[in-house]
Amino acid sequence: MKTAQEMKPNSVALIDGQPWLIQKAEFTKSGRNSAIVKMKLRNLLTGSSTETVYKADDKLEPVILDRIDVTYSYYSEPNYVFMDEEFNQYELNKEDLESVLPYIVDGMTDVCEAVFFEGKVVSVDLPTTIVRQITYTEGSARGDTSGKVMKPAKLSNGTEVKVADFCEIDDWIEIDTRTGEYKSRAKAPV
């Protein structure tokens, strides 16, 4: 068993006999309220989605899932197609990819993990850190070089992230895919 707080997006919990994919998990703690985790879940058998909330220390039963390395190949409406080393293709729709969709861009070379439940692909995990290029951001407003002042920036797929004030258009940046937060400037991928 794992606590609700330990269950991360793209993991699966068995609840009342049903496998539920955790698409989103938001932890909150404030004042005297018990720490809670709000989750968006999708039933892997019926496809239905629901929002639910747990005390952070509530126990959930994790399901061990099979995983294989894949890379993003192309988009064929309505599916995103991933491919493994043996050129097997795996199709997922945007509901399956909710937590990773903001970082899917054409030509990406990140090695991802396709996640399987009972032989069926149910989601994809990105690496913890990815590198993406800024396609638009305003100029530095305050000349800050500390990295503490943040401003919005857009990636090529339209995703908006907060980046350090000194970042410029065409810069490459590292993003933490667990939090969606900017980590640092980076070199362009080779």
Binding site: W20, T28, S30, N33, K38, T50, E51, V53
Partner: peptide, 17 residues
Amino acid sequence: SAEKWVGGCHGLPSMQS
């Protein structure tokens, strides 16, 4: 609590096993 997240969690189920 007056925090904004409260409105997004009020009334939500907590699915039990």
